[in-house]
Design a protein around this nucleic acid. Structure first.
Lengths: 180, 180
DNA sequence: TACAATTTTCAGAAATTACTGAAAATTCAA
DNA sequence: TTGAATTTTCAGTAATTTCTGAAAATTGTA
């Protein structure tokens, strides 16, 4: 388990970004090393590669499991547990979207719905509810999209993304179509 | 500057979510109070509403400014600075997307490009570069999308979002069209 | 220009989060 | 079933982040 300079710099970057992606530094680094290495790794190898304690790796793996970002596998003749990331990068992206939706959007939607069900106490609450309603509607649409994405094949997501700026034209076309 | 129970619970929720959205607890709370209140607020009012120090508010406002999430305005006859959030919720969402792209995607793309320009040191680096290339391509597409979004009117974004599950059908149509 | 009002900065304190080593729990081969 | 290998847990510690009060800087009015 040797880490090349190229890998090291990518791992560091994932570490720095980790906290921005809802994980944390170590989790980011751990995932980097797993994603960038071809063969599955065991906890000791990760611990050694990142110079962090075995127990920290254990906690990190637990977290990565809860995100569905890693796959557990066994190597014949070895009692250790080995972990790897999906080989399909789209699958990883999809998982990230799903998990982030669960953690960030879903609870917020619930909180918005709660607020909308309450009786406004004064003028100020009425304004607040108006704002909440708008945010709610937007987030609900994003949620629907994300569920849509969740059920799309990698191919389809890829096609969609490749549309790029083409999407504008499609919307224009759709708008025209609707107005007819 | 009184906070109703409804507002209080929304502020708390924004606080908890704040750290997940790349801000932090206080920043989330501050933005909640600004977004949910109709009239612009000054730093003292925010400090009082959230029971945090004046200096903390000053730091928070600085951060929110750097995110382009708030607008500064002056009230005639008052020397204090007043802040408000855009009234158009889509504008807020768009700003968030732009800023997060700048902070999360752009540096990562740079780091990926760096890695791809390097000479692989061994077999392992070759695999790493293959993975990096895939992640790079995906992220680049997401970036293009996000720039696209950035230049779309609120109306258009709204239409796009409302497409919801309709998007699948459009892709199918496009696929068929391309295969002819 | 002087000065009061207001905002910003920043060093240290407080709070939170992450990490470790040791011990407990689990797993699995014999 | 036993016990060695492995993984997990967790209390205490370390590191990081956030927050505060006091002081400095800035702003705008007279």
């Amino acid at each position: 388990m040797t880490i090349t300079p190229m890998q090291q710099s990518l791992i560091s970057h994932f570490g720095e970004m980790g906290s921005r992606w809802g994980l944390n530094r170590t989790l980011g680094q751990m995932y980097a090393v797993i994603v960038l290495t071809e063969n599955p790794l065991n906890a000791d190898q990760i611990s050694e590669a990142l110079l962090i304690s075995r127990s920290n790796v254990s906690m990190g793996l637990k977290e990565l499991k809860s995100w569905n970002l890693i796959k557990l596998q066994h190597i014949p003749g070895d009692r250790k547990e080995y972990f790897s990331a999906p080989k399909d990068i789209w699958e990883i992206a999809r998982t990230l979207i799903i998990e982030r939706r669960k953690r960030e959007l879903d609870p917020t939607l619930t909180s918005f719905r709660d607020a909308l069900l309450q009786e406004p106490a004064n003028e100020s609450d009425i304004y607040t509810q108006r704002r909440v309603q708008e945010m709610h509607d937007l987030m609900e649409m994003v949620t629907i999209w994300s569920i849509e994405l969740q059920n799309m094949s990698s191919d389809k997501v890829s096609t969609l993304l490749k549309l790029g700026s083409g999407i504008s034209k499609i919307i224009d076309a759709k708008e025209k179509f609707l107005k007819k």
